[in-house]
Structure formats: C-alpha cells, structure tokens
C-alpha cells in the first residue's frame, strides 16, 4: 500500500518536472520560462520528497528530506528573482508588453 502511494507521488513529481521542462522549452520569454521552471519544479520536488519520505526508514531521514526541500525552495526563489531582475535591467521586455505595444494599447504598454 505504502509502496503504491509512494510510487504515485514520485510519478506525480516527475510529471511536474516534465511540465516545467516543457515550459522552459516552449514558453515565449525568460519571465514565463522562469515561472514555469521554478513553480513546477518546486512542486515536483515536493512530491518526490514526500514520496521518498514514505519509504524512509527513520524520522531523522524524513526531517532531512523536508529540510532539503525547504532549502531548495528558498534557493530557487532567490535565483529566479535574481535572473528576472537582471533580465529586466538588461532591457528584455516581457512578451505581454511587446504584444500590447504592437496592438497599440497605450495603457498596458506604459
């Protein structure tokens, strides 16, 4: 029973990793890609961590898994923030803004 639950959680995690990677490859600009990658991968890692915690032999191992996940959450959020900020500073415009400007919508483009 636990094995099945754990396998289901791991597969769900893998699905979110796939989705994140798909977003990285298919989304139009760096901001969307960061969004897809950070959000989906953090969730995916959470599922993997829970799935592994079910298999873990001790509570200390489960705690380590939890701490690892939290640390990755914080690091990924910071890295995404830094990447997006330096992209903005380099003058890369979000794709929505470009599209709005192309359609002559002065409110959004401003």
């Amino acid at each position: 029973m636990i094995d099945i639950l754990s396998a289901a959680l791991l597969l769900t995690g893998a699905f979110f990793f796939m989705a994140g990677t798909l977003g990285l490859l298919r989304f139009p600009d760096i901001y969307c890609r960061l969004h897809a990658l950070t959000k989906a991968d953090n969730l995916g890692l959470g599922f993997v961590a829970v799935g592994l915690a079910l298999q873990a032999s001790s509570w200390s191992a489960r705690l380590q898994l939890l701490l690892t996940w939290l640390l990755v959450l914080v690091a990924a959020a910071t890295v995404a923030h830094l990447l997006a900020r330096s992209a903005l500073r380099e003058g890369i415009e979000p794709v929505r803004m470009l599209a709005d400007r192309a359609h002559g919508d002065p409110d959004d483009a401003a």
Binding site: L71, V74, A75, T78, H81, L82, R85
Partner: peptide, 15 residues
C-alpha cells in the same frame, strides 16, 4: 542592494 539575495545568504551561510 538586494534584500532577497541578502536574506538567502544570511540563511544559507550559517547552515
């Protein structure tokens, strides 16, 4: 100044 990077460093470095 980057408060986010600062916060990460202050969390990660002691760990």
């Amino acid at each position: 100044e980057d408060p986010v990077l600062d916060a990460l460093s202050r969390l990660v470095v002691p760990l």
